[in-house]
């Protein structure tokens, strides 16, 4: 059922260059409707750039991007369908949450003020206090509630839980999941940590070195990969039939992360399912070089 959903986000060869730096390169990805997609990647991988391109806050320097069926554009009807919360959680520090509700009511065609008040009261966040005096977690909740009050069809969140303590993080994600359960909402949220998002997300976009390494439903992506453990030997036979993502060798043993291209026939290899964290680290290690080498070369000297 889910796979036949229309795509909310569709990009093809999407690129963004700032004067000398390539922030995003040839990104091709699809996010179907109703997904909560984890946009994962190390710092500087291009997560923020991708989100800003999707929100229409930046213009691509190459490729195509379609969000909700059209290019992101300066059009009130389009903007009404999109919610974006930047990493810094921009709010008017000297205005109260209630003031922000007023702002939203004046600037949006659809506006569910009651839901914001109810939600914030439920979290014991004062409505009449200036938001500058609230904690980071409370501000994130205010920003999320305000964004959801627009009743957007696509919600883009840049590192929304990075600054939150575990309880606030849990509340935030529960709030988010509840909104998606209401139907009609698709979410992309970025993080450099997967653990936070693993249970709430059902879709994954993995960015590393400004390129998309992986994109798809988490169940599908996991099913497409396997870990092979066996005595140390030449991997050319494996590489012929499968895509080798990452190979780790000790003196006697080889551990291979592969994207499965067919059945593994060589009985020397013991095949095992791969966990999400292992998979993500495998792809990041492949591209990130020294920063992740300590994660991929464990056991090298043993």
């Amino acid at each position: 059922m889910a796979s036949s959903n229309p795509a909310v986000i569709q990009t093809c060869g999407l690129s963004k260059r700032y004067r000398k730096v390539t922030a995003l390169s040839e990104a091709t990805l699809t996010v179907p409707q109703g997904r909560i997609s984890a946009l994962i990647g190390p710092n500087g991988a291009g997560k923020t750039t991708l989100l800003r391109l999707l929100a229409g806050l930046a213009r691509p320097t190459g490729g195509e991007v379609a969000v909700l069926g059209g290019a992101p554009r300066q059009d009130p009807a389009f903007l009404a369908e999109i919610g974006f919360v930047a990493q810094e959680i921009p709010l008017y520090r000297r205005l109260s949450a209630e003031d922000h509700i007023g702002v939203g009511a004046h600037l949006n065609p659809r506006w569910d003020a009651a839901s914001v008040r109810q939600r914030l009261k439920g979290l014991n966040i004062p409505l009449d206090q200036t938001v500058g005096t609230l904690s980071g977690g409370q501000r994130a909740q205010v920003a999320l509630s305000l964004t959801l009050a627009k009743r957007p069809r696509l919600l883009l969140l840049d590192e929304p839980v990075a600054a939150l303590d575990p309880l606030a993080r849990r509340q935030f994600l529960a709030h988010l999941a509840e909104a998606v359960a209401g139907g009609g909402l698709t979410v992309v949220l970025s993080s450099h940590l997967l653990a936070d998002l693993e249970r709430v997300c059902d879709h994954l976009i993995l960015l590393a070195a400004s390129r998309v390494q992986l994109c798809g439903d988490i169940d599908t992506v996991l099913a497409e990969h396997q870990v092979l453990v066996g005595p140390r030997k030449d991997t050319t036979a494996i590489e012929k039939a499968h895509t080798l993502v990452q190979a780790t060798h000790t003196a006697r043993q080889s551990t291979l992360l592969i994207r499965v291209g067919g059945p593994v026939v060589d009985p020397a290899w013991e095949a095992a399912d791969v966990g999400l964290e292992e998979l993500v680290l495998g792809y990041m290690g492949q591209h990130a070089g020294p920063a992740f080498s300590h994660l991929t070369s464990v056991g090298e000297d043993q």
Binding site: P76, L79, F84, V85, A86, P90, Y92, V103, L107
Partner: peptide
């Protein structure tokens, strides 16, 4: 950015 992500 807050203002620009309203419907304006």
């Amino acid at each position: 950015q807050f203002a620009w992500m309203q419907s304006i």
